[in-house]
Design a binder for these strands. Structure first.
Lengths: 201, 201
DNA sequence: CTAGCCATGTAATCCGTTACATGATTGG
DNA sequence: CCAATCATGTAACGGATTACATGGCTAG
C-alpha cells in the first residue's frame, strides 16, 4: 500500500477552530479572518461555506436556521464534541512543512538583469510594505488590549502578533543591509567602466 | 470593462529566469530549484514541462532535440531576445502581495484547547526546524563561495541567503520568548487551581 | 540483477480565489 | 433613491502537487 495521501486541510481546521471560539455564521468567520487573522491567515467564502456544510455532514458541527423579522436569514453553526476532539487531534499533530515561495526573492535573485535603480526600488517598496504591516499589527494589538473583556485566547493571539513583529523587524533590517549591498554593487560596476573593464584587482 | 484579471505566473518567470541563467533542460531546472532555491522557491515537473512548451509557442524560447549515443534524449531550451525582454519587464513590476498562511500560527492561536505540553512541543519542533534551515542555508552559502568560478548572479544569491538567515534568526528568538510565555501561562493556571479558581487579583 | 540517476511527460486531484447571483435592511 | 452592510451560496478558473507511465544507462 502506498503511503496515504497527504492532504493539507488547513482551511478545514481554521473553520473548525473558529467554531470552537463561538463564531456562528460563515459571514462572521470571513470578517474575523479579515480583521483579526489577516497577518497569518486568509479564507474566502468559496472555502468557508462548503466546509461548514461538510463539517455538518461529518457530525463535527450542527446547523440551525434562524429567521428573524427585519433581518436576513442566517445559518447558525455550532461545534459538536466530536468536532472538538478532531480539532484537538489536529492541533497535536506537527504541522506539515509548507513550501515557501517568495516572489520578491525570486526577483532579487535575477537582479543582474535590470538596473540597480530597478532593484533598489523593489527593496524600498518592500520596506515600505513591512512598515505598513507593523502599523497594522500594532492596531490589532491595541484593539486586543483595549476593551476590558479579556478573551481566553488573548495570550495566544498576542504570541502570533509578536511573531509578526519579529519577522517584520528582521525584514526591515535586511532591507537596509540589502540596499547598501546594491549601492555598493552599482558603484563597483561604475568603477569597472571607468577603469576600462580590463582590470582584475 | 472590469479590471483585467490578476494572474500570478510566478512559475512562468521562474522558468524563464532559469533559462536566462543558461539552464537548458527541464530536469536540470528541477534539480537547480531543489538544490539552490529550496529556501524560497519550489517547482514541480508538472509545472516546468508545460511552461517550457508554452514559452516556445510564444517565441520566448527555442527548443532543439539532442540525441546522444549512450545517453537519453534531451530537449535543450534557450531563451530568445523577446524572452529576455519579457523577463526584464516582469522584474521591474512590483510583486503582488502574497496572502500568507502559517499553519503553526493557526495552531498556536488555538493553543488554549490543548495542554501546555502539546503547545510547547509545537514550538520546540519549530525551533529545531529553524536550526536545520540555518544549517542548510550555510551549506548553500559555502558551496556558493567555495569553487572559484564566481557566477555573475552570486551577489544576488547571497542577498537571498541573508534574508533566509535574518528570518530564521528572528524566528529562533521568537521561539525562545514564546516558550517562556507558555511556561508562564502554565504556572499561572496551576496557581489558579491551587487557590480555588475564585480569585481575581 | 537491481537500485539509482538521467530525462520526459500527462492525468488526476486538490486547493484556493474571483466573479457572479440573490436579496433584505439600514442609514444618509 | 442609493450605498453599505448583512448574509448565503456556486461556477469557473488558475495554480500547484502527486502519482503514474516510460525507458535507457551506470555502478555495485
Amino acid at each position: 500500500m502506498p503511503p496515504p495521501k497527504r492532504r493539507r486541510r488547513g482551511s478545514r481546521y481554521a473553520v473548525l477552530g473558529m467554531l470552537s471560539m463561538g463564531l456562528k455564521t460563515g459571514y462572521a468567520m470571513k470578517k474575523h479572518v479579515e480583521g483579526n487573522l489577516g497577518h497569518y491567515w486568509s479564507e474566502s467564502y468559496g472555502q468557508i461555506y462548503p466546509i461548514l456544510r461538510q463539517l455538518v455532514d461529518e457530525g463535527l458541527a450542527t446547523c440551525t436556521e434562524e429567521r428573524r423579522k427585519g433581518k436576513p436569514m442566517r445559518n447558525l453553526y455550532s461545534i459538536t464534541p466530536s468536532g472538538r476532539k478532531e480539532l484537538r487531534e489536529w492541533l497535536a499533530m506537527p504541522p506539515e512543512p509548507q513550501p515557501q515561495r517568495s516572489e520578491i526573492l525570486l526577483k532579487l535573485s535575477l537582479g543582474n538583469r535590470v538596473s540597480s535603480e530597478t532593484c533598489q526600488k523593489l527593496i524600498r517598496d518592500y520596506r515600505q510594505q513591512c512598515e505598513q504591516d507593523l502599523a497594522y499589527l500594532d492596531d490589532i494589538a491595541s484593539a486586543l488590549r483595549g476593551p476590558g473583556a479579556q478573551h481566553r485566547d488573548q495570550p495566544y493571539w498576542l504570541m502570533t502578533l509578536h511573531h509578526g513583529r519579529a519577522i517584520r523587524e528582521a525584514e526591515l533590517a535586511w532591507c537596509g543591509q540589502t540596499l547598501a549591498h546594491l549601492r555598493r554593487l552599482a558603484t563597483q560596476k561604475k568603477q569597472w567602466k571607468k577603469e576600462g573593464g580590463a582590470s582584475d584587482g
